[in-house]
Design a protein around this nucleic acid. Structure first.
Lengths: 152, 152
DNA sequence: CTCTGTGCAAACACTTTGCAGCTAA
DNA sequence: TTAGCTGCAAAGTGTTTGCACAGAG
């Protein structure tokens, strides 16, 4: 796994954690040590861990935590925009026949997928070093957020 | 679910099916009526169906098909680039703390996720009608294909 | 003190696998 | 004819839920 250059330093970890704490309070969530631990562990890695992997890591500094709590915490974090699911969804896979001619907006609350079509996105240029190394079959712009219906 | 303007017409269905048949043969796959049926059903919709939904539809014209076959066919189709998983993965969810500062390439064979960072992609402009209607939390360019290791 | 969050275990949803019979090439 | 495909049933994998206790506000 190739990593990019963001080994987080102590200072950034601290400031992001402060942001997180504020953000939780604002959302009416309690700030528990488990939540902090999961969030910090997520900040410290850039390997897109699964709940299981994160659980293994957090357990080292917080031995009594359970996998469920990690799972639930991650759900909570994604609801407040402090974490994102970058692969997988827990729901059933959804297929399409593979046109580049539309893009997806996904609501992280109701999981609705809304198609849209923004012509400039059809033509995004893929950097040469990707095309050289990999066989590109599909490219798309993917947007996530809260949809109109869920943003009460 | 909002659809875009691509109700497929008979002519396109036929030509895409021909492409599909050729493509299967080239990949050493047998052309079975089940495969054709699943592929055509996928072409006819733009609602990103799950295997289950596709199964319900295909069953109407092919009553003896099983859900497994639909599932297996979809796996096969994605391996040859005739279909794509637009949501979900079957594997565990993968999280990150949500930086816009990198993009993902995903290999559809080994499912490896390779980070890359192409500066212009950090600044893609989201169309106003999306920003007006939805609260955007994350945007990214997502590329899929076959990675160097799998492209024997 | 109250009410949300946690841990445990059981329930679930979806996908994958093993095998015997079938069928496209 | 025969390798690959299908259908069925069973096993996995990962996620969610229900409940009682614990701890943050």
């Amino acid at each position: 796994m190739k990593n990019i250059e963001n080994e987080i330093d102590g200072k950034e970890l601290k400031s992001k954690t402060e942001w997180f704490v504020t953000h939780c309070r604002r959302a009416g969530l309690k700030v528990t040590p488990q939540r902090i631990a999961v969030y910090q562990e997520l900040l410290k890695t850039n390997e897109h861990p699964s709940a299981e992997i994160l659980y293994q890591k957090v357990k080292q500094i917080f031995p009594s935590i359970s996998l469920d709590t990690v799972n639930r915490t991650l759900v909570t974090l994604s609801e407040i925009g402090a974490a994102f699911v970058v692969e997988g969804s827990g729901d059933a896979k959804r297929y399409d026949a593979g046109s580049d001619k539309h893009q997806h907006f996904k609501c992280i609350k109701c999981r609705r997928i809304i198609d849209f079509h923004h012509k400039p996105f059809d033509d995004i240029k893929i950097p040469a070093y990707i095309n050289d190394k990999f066989k590109v079959l599909r490219k798309t712009v993917y947007i996530e957020g809260i949809c109109d219906l869920c943003d009460k």
